[in-house]
Nucleic acid binder design. Sequence first.
DNA 1: CCCCTAAGTAGTAATGATTACTACTTCATT
DNA 2: AATGAAGTAGTAATCATTACTACTTAGGGG
Lengths: 128, 128
Amino acid sequence: MKYSYQREQILKIVQSSYGHLSANEVYEQVRKIIPNISLGTVYRNLNTLAEHHFIRRIIMPHGSDEYDYNVEPHSHIYCVKCGNIYDLPSKVDERMQKLVEKEAGYTITKSSVVFEGICPQCESEKEG
Amino acid sequence: MKYSYQREQILKIVQSSYGHLSANEVYEQVRKIIPNISLGTVYRNLNTLAEHHFIRRIIMPHGSDEYDYNVEPHSHIYCVKCGNIYDLPSKVDERMQKLVEKEAGYTITKSSVVFEGICPQCESEKEG
DNA sequence: CCCCTAAGTAGTAATGATTACTACTTCATT
DNA sequence: AATGAAGTAGTAATCATTACTACTTAGGGG
C-alpha cells in the first residue's frame, strides 16, 4: 500500500466518527477537505482499508454498506425506531458461532448478521 | 389478492423447488410455461406472495435475494465450497434471538442472518 | 349475464449502490 | 532524475430491483 493523501483523510474520518458511515457519508465529509475527490476513490480506499483491517466493512442486507472503525468481529443491530446502527458485543458473536457449529455441524468462516429491533433507549422512551 | 395465472405458476415453482431460488431463476423457469412473462411480474408476485406469507424472501447480504418455500423463520448458511444455501433449524434462531435480547437488552423484531462457512458434506470430503 | 373498476400484466425506463475503465498523476525506489 | 507500480478524477457500465405506462382481466353488484 502506497501512501496517498486521499486515503489518509478517509481513514481519519472513519476513525474519528466513532460510528458507522456509508461510503456516501464519507464522501460528503471528505469533500470538505478535498473538494474534487471522486466517489470511486472513496469506495476504492474504504475497501482497501477494510482488506488491510484498518477498518471494517459491514455488509448491510439492503441499503448501502457501512464502514466501521471497530475492527473486532461483531454483529450489528438496526433500531427501527431511531434508525441508528449499534454494535453488539463480540461475545454475542462468539456464542452465536458456537451455537451454529454445535447445532448444525457447520464450520463458520464468516457471518453477516444484522438484527432489526428496538434499542434499550427507545424501549424505555415508550413508557414515558 | 386477485387470482392470476402468472402468480399461480410462480408459486408452484417456488413450492416445488424445495430450495431457494432467486427472482431470476424463477423467471427462467416460468418462461418455459409463459414465454412472454415479464421479469417485473416475477418480482411483483414473489414479493406479494412473501407479504402474504405463502413464501419467504431471504435478503442476502450481497447478490440477489432468494425466495424460499419454507415460511418458518430461519437463518441461512452459504457454503463457500459448494455454493449452496442451506437452512438452519429455527431452534438456532430462537436461541440467537434470546442471546441478543439477554446480553444486549434489545428487543428483536426481525433478523437478517446469513452465515458463511463449510457444510458438513464438504467438510467430510476434505479428508477424502 | 354483463358491466365496471381495482388489480394485474408486458414492456420499458429509472433508480441506487457499487465497480470498471481510461488517461493522467504521484509515490518511493534504484 | 528515471522508472514503474499504485493511485486518482471523471465517467461509463453493471446488477438487482422498482417505477411507470398503457393495456388487459378477474370477479362482484346491478
